[in-house]
Design a protein around this nucleic acid. Structure first.
Length: 923
DNA sequence: GCAAGGTC
């Protein structure tokens, strides 16, 4: 038997689990435990005695609230301009306890010091195992020689919990490693792409989101595929070409009622064939019954409810957003009315007291009588719930845990969601609905038709699950061989319809199927798309991409990347499984995955013209200077002063340029650049002479009126000391801002506002492209805005006249407006010529330059049509890498091509510094 | 100002 009691610290993933486990282990329904507050107001400490394998234990049970730690870049990489986003693939990261979790850490440290064992009661999944190691790190830092165990439990029921306590195991580092890898990959990809695309696009275009906000164009491995689903469906709809089809229908009315027969061929697209068949039928219209089938059919109740189903059904039945559903469900859970709402499980464990849950509901005025019938064995309504096949081993399916007829503090949505959970549960333990179905097949002139009828024999679960319906009408009686003359026989036409926009339920299904997000985060990803203005949701909970969302996806798609598809996430998920099973190591996965993603990032940056092109389809170019975001932060050279960091090109808040050490303020090494520079961007060219290298050369552009006339405006220079031109200009024009040259301030020091002189000059200069003052050649809007381009492709108003020549027969096509349910208000053209029948939606018309009339949007499905909607060529000078005569390519830190042309001869293929006509004056 | 994952 036991000797001295050992002290055991137990930690659960959330306060509710700590309480439940403590109640079970302390016995007497929790009567044997004491409760005291911890440092955190939510995470209390429960104390009780317990025997683990004959060892007397003094148990202290507390909790965390999910992850205790966060992963982020080290301080010097946190600022957006602190480094090139490319560096985020190598930048050091650290895991730390954030401010709002410090009190939990303190509780854990204090309790750990008093204990000899640590038992981890985290959820039994990979995230839970990772949190376990976060707890271990904190606890062992306070007490290094803890004996550490893991309790494995699959449900918060007595037998499971005692078994877990008696069969403690060691934590599984592999599971935790898998999550570590996932976190690091998500962080590096997310931060690098987000910074890159935000800095590239936000100032380059006029993106009006209707409110003042600091625009962030985020990229994430979950949010983007989610957006991808929305855009893909949208493109599918746009690419849809309606096709007219023909169908023969038949009905027969007798004393018993009317039967509607549908054609077994379905429909034919060929009018001529359809009319031949139809005429055969009308010439010999006698129908002969060739088959009558009667069979019993069941409609089964749904599986037990998990989070995704709850969200989908609340969206379908109540049009509640998934995000709102989770908020309301969380509140019902907190108040004890429903079980834990974040669960994948759709299968009740055999130990669950299902009848007890039903019994709780018998007093309810609306569904109470149904619950009563369920419990009555004579009613034969009970059926054990089906198994949906998912089990997260941590939580049961969502079910009611407390009876209520509605609380005074409930909103309508609380009542509605509670009702859904209760009715769903009652339905799950009910018999399926039973129907008698009849199928009658007839033959008219060799063509077969069919009518279906259904009589409901027993509604069973449908009595309580009012959300499901199972309609059906009775058929008159027919016998095989019976003959009749149809009451009507018609040739009807129809038009194929595109699929509908994705509903919230559809979107959740897509995400679930592709493994995007978890049950606890899927609604967050959807909400993020709305918050970022990548998508909108209409009153029917259907999603459309915004211009911004579509442009981003289009840009990456045009690059040939499937960054917006779910494959990346699936691949990562497979890698995580491999790590957790030990077939790959965390470092292998991190190395390979990050290497691939970095290559992809660099490639995307090289091809960013595609992103700019796509944006340009939807947004007007802005005249805002982009230098502030685009050029800054690029590494120029290693710092020769501290020998630890790099020096990067930066612009101070007042606009002056410098190359400063990234370790500022620890290292204050700085090279100030002349005040006469208007633009500067770091190139990939390395100076052959300066050391320590590599010293990347910088492409400068000077204000014409601020430098002597014998100097070029464009100059590829080096800050390493070898560049005479730069040195001379610095001496002549002063360092840093023009009014405060040579004051010797450190970085970030207080600086005098920039003189208005240069601003005045730039206003006086005229654009070389359009001769208008107020902007430079590079910012000239008329270089980028194609006057024929619609500002928004969502509006085609006024793009076409109301009559155009038909491409098929040359006859007149007249514009009409659809008034069908799916296309109300949508304009289309229809050929007026007899026998032509040509038809096209206005928004599918190619906006081609020749304007030769309407024609079908040709090509290979959605993407071609989308690309063709722009009706524009590619191959503008800007957006392509420009090379000078030496074949040197100029790109900036974010890969921005250096635009412009030779100042001396005007040739865009080279810059003035390599112009053959250049007369050297800097002797 | 960036991700996704826990959770209050």
């Amino acid at each position: 038997m036991s000797g001295r009691a050992i002290r055991v610290l137990n930690v659960a993933e959330k306060p509710s689990v700590a309480k439940s486990v403590a109640e079970i282990l302390s016995g007497r329904g929790g009567g044997g435990m004491r409760v005291r507050d911890g440092r955190s107001r939510y995470n209390r400490v429960f104390e009780f005695e317990y025997m683990i394998r004959n060892q007397r234990c003094f148990m202290a049970m507390t909790s965390v609230t999910g992850h205790l730690m966060e992963l982020d870049f080290e301080e010097r990489y946190k600022k957006w301009h602190s480094c090139d986003p490319e560096a985020l693939y190598q930048a050091p990261v650290r895991k730390f306890v954030p401010q709002d979790k410090l009190d939990i850490r303190r509780t854990l440290e204090e309790e750990a010091r008093k204990c000899e064992w640590l038992v981890l009661w985290l959820d039994c999944d990979r995230e839970g195992e990772n949190i376990a190691y976060e707890v271990i790190e904190v606890c062992t830092s306070a007490k290094s020689n803890l004996n550490i165990y893991r309790a494995h439990f699959s449900a918060l029921i007595e037998r499971e919990i005692h078994e877990a306590a008696q069969n403690l195991v060691r934590p599984n580092k592999l599971f935790a490693d898998a999550v570590d890898a996932r976190q690091e990959i998500d962080l590096r990809i997310g931060a690098s792409f987000t910074r890159f695309q935000t800095m590239l696009l936000k100032d380059a275009f006029i993106i009006d989101l209707g409110e003042e906000r600091n625009l962030v164009l985020s990229y994430g491995p979950c949010q983007f595929p989610t957006l991808g689903f929305i855009v893909e469906r949208y493109w599918e709809i746009q690419a849809h070409e309606p096709e007219e089809f023909w169908t023969v229908n038949c009905s027969h009315t007798s004393e018993e009622g009317t039967a509607s027969f549908t054609w077994l061929r379905g429909h034919l697209f060929d009018y001529a064939s359809a009319i031949v068949i139809y005429e055969m039928c009308t010439e010999e219209p006698t129908a002969t019954v060739i088959n009558v089938k009667n069979h019993e059919k069941f409609k089964y109740p749904p599986h037990p409810l998990n989070t995704i189903e709850l969200q989908k059904r609340a969206s379908r039945y109540y049009r509640m957003s998934s995000e709102h559903t989770m908020k309301v469900a969380e509140e019902l859970y907190q108040a004890g009315f429903i079980s834990y709402p974040r669960t994948e499980t759709d299968n009740f464990s055999p130990n669950t007291d299902l009848a007890g849950i039903v019994r709780d509901q018998v007093e309810h005025p609306v569904w109470g009588p149904y619950a009563q019938r369920l419990l009555d064995p004579d009613a034969r309504l009970w059926r054990n719930p089906s198994n949906g096949g998912h089990d997260d081993k941590a939580h049961p399916p969502i079910h009611p845990t407390k009876f209520s007829t509605g609380q005074s503090n409930w909103t309508q949505d609380h009542a509605k969601l509670y009702e859904l959970v209760v009715r769903h549960f009652l339905a799950c333990v009910s018999q399926p609905a039973v129907g008698a179905e009849t199928t009658v097949e007839i033959d008219i002139a060799g063509e077969q038709f069919q009518a279906n009828g259904r009589a409901i024999i027993a509604k069973n679960y449908l009595d309580v699950y009012r959300f499901d319906s199972w309609g059906g009408s009775l058929l008159p009686t027919y016998t095989v061989g019976q003959q009749f003359i149809p009451t009507s026989l018609t040739l009807d036409s129809g038009v194929t319809r595109p699929p509908p926009l994705l509903s919230e339920a559809d979107l959740l299904s897509c995400m679930d199927k592709a493994g995007i997000g978890t049950d606890a985060t899927m609604h967050d990803h959807i909400k993020k798309l709305l918050d970022r203005c990548y998508a909108t949701k209409d009153a029917n909970t259907r999603f459309s991409p915004t211009n911004l969302g579509e442009a981003l996806v289009m840009g990456y798609d045009d690059m040939g990347y499937e960054l917006w598809k779910p494959y990346l996430r699936s691949m990562m998920e497979a890698d995580m499984r491999a790590v957790s099973m030990g077939t790959k190591t965390k470092s292998q996965v991190l190395e390979i995955c990050l290497q691939q993603m970095k290559a992809c990032f660099l490639d995307a940056r090289t091809n960013k013209a595609k992103l700019l092109d796509a944006m340009q389809l939807f947004f007007q170019r802005s005249n805002r200077p982009q230098g502030g975001d685009v050029n800054q932060g690029a590494v120029v050279r290693p710092c020769g002063a501290c020998c630890e960091s790099d020096m990067a090109l930066k612009r101070t808040p007042n606009g002056s340029l410098m190359v400063g050490c990234m370790s500022y303020p620890l290292c204050r090494n700085v090279v100030w650049l002349p005040g006469s520079i208007s633009e500067a961007s770091v190139t990939n060219n390395i100076c052959p002479t300066c050391t320590p290298g590599p010293v990347f050369m910088i492409q400068f552009k000077f204000h014409r009126l601020e430098i002597p006339p014998n100097y070029d405006v464009d100059h590829l220079g080096c800050i390493g000391g070898c560049d005479t031109i730069l040195r001379e200009l610095t001496e002549m024009c002063g360092r840093g801002p023009r009014n405060s040259a040579g004051t010797g301030r450190g970085q970030g020091g207080r600086e005098t506002p920039r003189s208005t002189t240069s601003g005045t000059h730039s206003r006086l200069l005229s654009c070389k492209n359009c001769n208008q003052p107020g902007h430079s050649f590079d910012d000239c809007p008329s270089r980028f805005v194609n006057p024929r381009m619609p500002q928004s492709t969502n509006s085609n108003n006024g793009r076409y006249s109301d009559q155009l020549p038909c491409r098929q027969c040359g006859g007149p096509c007249v514009q009409r407006t659809a008034n069908t349910e799916n296309n109300r208000g949508r304009k289309f053209y229809k050929c007026q010529s007899e026998n032509c029948g040509f038809f096209i939606w206005e928004d599918n018309i190619l906006d081609n330059a020749t304007g030769q009339g309407v024609g079908r949007a040709c090509g290979r499905g959605a993407r071609t049509v989308t690309a063709s909607r722009s009706g524009r060529g590619r191959g503008r000078a800007r957006g392509q890498r420009s090379a000078n005569s030496d074949g040197v390519t100029f790109v900036t830190a974010t890969g921005e091509p250096v635009s412009g042309r030779c100042y001396i001869c005007g040739d865009p293929s080279h810059f003035a510094n390599t112009c053959p006509e250049r007369v050297r004056v800097d002797a």
